[in-house]
Design a protein around this nucleic acid. Structure first.
Length: 302
DNA sequence: CACTTGACCTGTCCGC
DNA sequence: TGCGGACAGGTCAAGT
């Protein structure tokens, strides 16, 4: 579920917490979730943190970068060790009405795969002190990968990705050009293709089509230039709104402090089938496209 | 070549 | 109550 806005929310939260910290220990509770040698990053200081598409990069001094993909159910939760990891305010309702079991708020929990412990500058001699970063992943699709920072290795792993939608080089003309490589695809399916535009997943693909007033089934070859422009704007709005509300939590997304995101309280179509359109009151419909749930307003999106 | 399906996983929900 | 099956959705490999 983490898409660009969710990963960006995590990056923004971690940025002022872990840069400058030194990794003291790496514990692999689920070794399969971690590729590479933990020794390559142990004792190294974190000097940078970036996001490309849905991938986070943790840059370490002297040669290594740790790439993290959260896939469906990944979380990165930071615990300073100085106060409760998860403030009481986070124990809110989840969409769908599931109260959050306290157990899931404890770190570590049964979905914790990797624990990073940092040197605590305040208590450098203690073995047990130090803040921690927990990589949790219920479904184990996500991964952490240690790669050499140099020799273009990181670039080669990222170079099949399409443009970053929130960067200025992502124009409507670029969007059109990349989409026209696949003339017959339904537009919503194409938006999930990371080589066309990166970072969009199933939630924001439906929302972007709604914002542009385009039916998600529409074949790319049938789109006008006005519709490419509207789609470009619709993508930006969906992603920016997602970031503004701290991401989308349908089941288990949380930010770096364990807090849910609120975008779905403002979404127009995603997970709103059988509910009235916020614009025209028509009942929102759900269909399957390429096996993925797709939501739209049959009246606003002809 | 264009496109679809299956695999990877776990947890929840629904019908019988 | 228990059980089987569908569903959730990111990405890649394999299949049509």
């Amino acid at each position: 579920m983490p898409e660009l806005p969710e990963v960006e929310t995590i990056r923004l939260g971690l940025q002022n917490k872990i840069i400058g910290l030194t990794i003291k220990q790496v514990e692999l509770l689920t070794p399969k979730s971690f590729q590479g040698n933990p020794k390559d990053i142990t004792g190294k200081k974190i000097v940078g943190l970036w996001r490309r598409a849905k991938i986070l990069g943790v840059v370490l001094e002297s040669d290594f970068t740790m790439l993290i993909h959260l896939k469906m159910s990944g979380q990165l939760v930071y615990d300073s060790g100085k106060r409760p990891a998860l403030p009481d305010g986070s124990r809110g309702r989840f969409i769908g009405g599931h109260p959050t079991p306290d157990m899931e708020l404890q770190m570590p929990n049964r979905s914790t795969r990797v624990i990073f412990t940092f040197d605590d500058p305040l208590r450098p001699r203690s073995e047990t002190s130090g803040s921690k970063l927990y990589f949790n992943d219920q479904r184990r699709f996500g991964w952490v990968k240690i790669v050499d920072s140099g020799q273009g290795i990181v670039d080669s792993l990222l170079n099949n990705l399409g443009p970053e939608p929130l960067e200025k080089e992502f124009t409507w003309q670029i969007l059109r050009q990349n989409l026209l490589r696949h003339k017959t695809l339904p537009i919503k399916v194409a938006l999930l293709d990371q080589s066309i535009v990166s970072g969009i997943g199933n939630i924001y693909a439906s929302e972007a089509c709604f914002n542009a007033k385009i039916n998600p089934k529409t074949s790319i070859s049938n789109l006008s230039d006005k519709q490419f422009k509207d789609l470009h704007k619709g993508i930006l709005k969906a992603l920016q709104d997602g970031i503004k509300h701290g991401g989308s939590t349908r089941t288990n997304f949380v930010d770096s402090e364990g807090r849910r995101g609120y975008f779905l309280d403002y979404a127009f179509v995603y997970w709103r089938d059988k509910e009235p359109c916020r614009v025209c009151n028509t009942t929102i419909e759900k269909i399957q496209l390429r096996g993925r749930g797709t939501y739209y307003c049959p009246s606003c999106q002809k």
